Amino acid sequence: MFGQTQPGEWEGHMAVGLDALDADQRQFVEAHVKGGRVVADHSWGQTDTVVLEVVAGPCRVIVKAGGPSNGHIAREIRGHREWAAPWRATGSAARMIAADERARVLITTYLEGQLVEGTPAQDDPGIYEQAGRLSAVFHDQYATADPTWNARLRDRTLRFLSMPHRIHPRIAEQVRQEVAGWPVGGATVVPTHGDWQPRNWLDDHGVLRVIDLGRADLRTPEEDFVRLGRQDFLRNPELEAAVVAGYGRDPRDPDMWRRTNVAEAVGTAAWAFKVRGEDFEALGHAHLGRLYPE
């Protein structure tokens, strides 16, 4: 039923408990994973999302839970229910075992593989070609018109600019001037992963698998290229070509691509400053520097 683990595989590992979960979440997990014990905490630590690896006999699962204001768990549950079927069909994504949106908790099967980020696979065009194919099948399953998309993109960018940040005043003013000229109409949106990059990919002996649907939502397809664009594509243009080849076409409209990059860079710099993620904040500032050179 769940992912299998070999006998004795977890011997010597210090088990951690479910202390990070509230009472309702613990009760939910204990009801669905009887006799389970936590063997690893995979939480990033930058948000209140908790990600735990749990072993119950020969099986292991992933438990994800969030705090009272957490919106990621609801998005992840929706992503699994509404859009993950094409990935599940090929074993590219986990299967959701149980979920409680009110309690902000879900349990999925465990996926084999090593995180692509920080490994040689992060520079392998073959991995990125697979990523292109997986994003295409995800995007192509559904499309609809969102009459408020462009207005919300503009509002989101200005909202981040209004937060405390360390964006250079020259750049902040250039952003405001540019955003004032952005369109306010609608756009075609598709299912997107929302954080499509190597830290959410697993390499299972050359086969790419996908994790973390916590930002899944209907957006323009450009949104699933933007985080690759600010880092991996810059490092090696062959990776961009591989994604496009796997996708089968380049879905990026040049004007929307520019707006998406500006919004992403501002949001990264401001949000990372708020959570004191200095490395991530530096990524946002570098992106802004490329978009608004002196």
Rank of each mutant, 00 (worst) to 15 (best):
M1P: 06
M1F: 13
M1N: 13
F2E: 07
Q6V: 13
E11K: 10
E11P: 04
G12F: 12
V16E: 12
A20N: 05
L21M: 07
D24V: 08
D24M: 10
R26P: 09
F28Y: 11
F28W: 08
V29M: 07
A31C: 07
V33Q: 02
V39M: 10
D41G: 01
S43T: 04
G45L: 04
Q46I: 11
T47I: 09
T49F: 10
V50G: 00
V55D: 00
R60F: 10
V61K: 04
K64T: 02
A65L: 03
G66D: 02
G71Q: 07
H72W: 09
E76D: 10
R78F: 10
R81E: 08
R81F: 14
A85C: 12
A85H: 14
S92L: 11
A93Q: 04
A93K: 01
M96E: 05
A99Y: 13
D100T: 05
R102G: 07
A103D: 05
V105M: 09
L106W: 09
L106G: 02
I107V: 12
Y110W: 15
L111E: 12
L111G: 03
E112G: 15
E112Y: 14
E112P: 12
T119A: 10
P120H: 11
Q122F: 09
D123Y: 15
D124V: 13
I127P: 00
A131G: 06
A136S: 13
Y142V: 11
Y142R: 10
A145F: 14
D146F: 05
N150C: 07
L158Y: 07
F160Y: 12
P164D: 04
P164T: 02
H168E: 14
H168R: 15
I171V: 06
R176T: 04
V179R: 00
A180T: 01
W182V: 02
G186F: 08
V189G: 02
P191F: 05
T192Q: 05
H193K: 01
W196R: 00
W196H: 04
Q197S: 09
L208K: 04
V210K: 03
L213R: 03
L213A: 04
R215N: 02
D217L: 03
L218V: 07
P221W: 08
E223V: 10
E223I: 13
D224L: 03
D224E: 10
V226Y: 01
V226I: 14
V226N: 02
L228P: 01
G229D: 10
G229A: 10
G229F: 08
R230D: 08
Q231T: 14
D232R: 14
N236E: 11
P237N: 06
A242T: 09
A242I: 14
V244P: 02
A245Q: 12
G246P: 02
Y247L: 05
G248L: 12
R249I: 08
D250A: 01
R252I: 06
P254F: 11
M256H: 11
W257P: 00
R258Q: 02
R258M: 05
T260A: 05
T260M: 06
E264R: 03
E264K: 06
A265N: 00
V275T: 09
G277K: 03
D279N: 05
G284L: 04
G284C: 03
H285T: 06
A286W: 13
H287Q: 08
L288H: 06
L288D: 01
R290A: 14
L291H: 01
Y292M: 05
P293R: 11
E294T: 11
